[in-house]
């Protein structure tokens, strides 16, 4: 049997059609990636002129109002312990050190948080000029409703102490131990946007 093939060049219209298809695909991928990023990294601005703080937190996080807390947001869509960021402003006088605040917080948290334990205390550069004190800690989160069968979660937290004249800005980040490393990027982005 003899098979005969005849090569035939694509017409100009066909060639343009191929190019446009490729361009549309690239565009679609680009827009899709953009939409994904917009959804993932969408942020909501927060400004507190009384305290002098500006920050951006993830858009779909629940903005809570907790007495004594300047900003309190958490990811309610996250199953398990809600990843949480909050900011408090603590009084600070010349005779005090950050260490005093850490100890005071520890005294209160050992009452409020089951199995509270400080993992490490370190210092880290923050922004251009500041040196911050970082406290990593862990505790067990047990939700309050006694009528539901809830499994306590092991939580890792990080406190960032930023000294500002006679105040200390305490930025706290807490997340389930299983997702802490993954969620930490959110906290880093939050800190990058924090203006005080």
């Amino acid at each position: 049997m003899i098979i005969e093939t005849t090569a035939r060049e694509a017409t100009r219209t066909q060639r343009f059609a191929h190019y446009f298809t490729l361009i549309y695909c690239a565009l679609a991928l680009f827009i899709g990636a953009n939409l994904r990023d917009s959804a993932l990294y969408a942020i909501t601005p927060y400004t507190n002129s009384e305290v002098g703080i500006t920050a951006f937190y993830p858009e779909s996080w629940l903005f809570d109002t907790t007495p004594g807390v300047v900003l309190d947001v958490r990811d309610t869509q996250r199953a398990g312990f809600n990843t949480r960021i909050n900011i408090r402003v603590l009084p600070f006088s010349p005779g005090m050190s950050v260490r005093n605040l850490i100890d005071t917080l520890a005294l209160q948290r050992r009452i409020d948080l089951p199995f509270y334990k400080i993992l490490s205390v370190s210092e880290r550069a923050f922004g251009l000029d500041d040196i911050t004190t970082i406290v990593d800690y862990t505790f067990v989160s047990d939700l309050d409703d006694p009528f539901l069968q809830l499994i306590p979660a092991v939580v890792i937290g990080e406190d960032v102490f930023i000294v500002r004249r006679n105040q200390v800005i305490l930025v706290s980040f807490t997340a389930d131990a299983n997702t802490f490393d993954r969620d930490y990027a959110i906290f880093e982005r939050f800190l990058e946007t924090l203006d005080y």
Binding site: D64, D145, Q149, L150, I151
Partner: peptide, 23 residues
């Protein structure tokens, strides 16, 4: 709803079996 707690009447979390209740 803009994810502000002031807009909430109540919220709850499901337990390990998916059960929930608003007290």
């Amino acid at each position: 709803f803009i994810y502000n707690a002031n807009q909430l009447y109540s919220l709850t979390t499901t337990d390990r079996d998916g059960r929930f209740q608003f007290s």
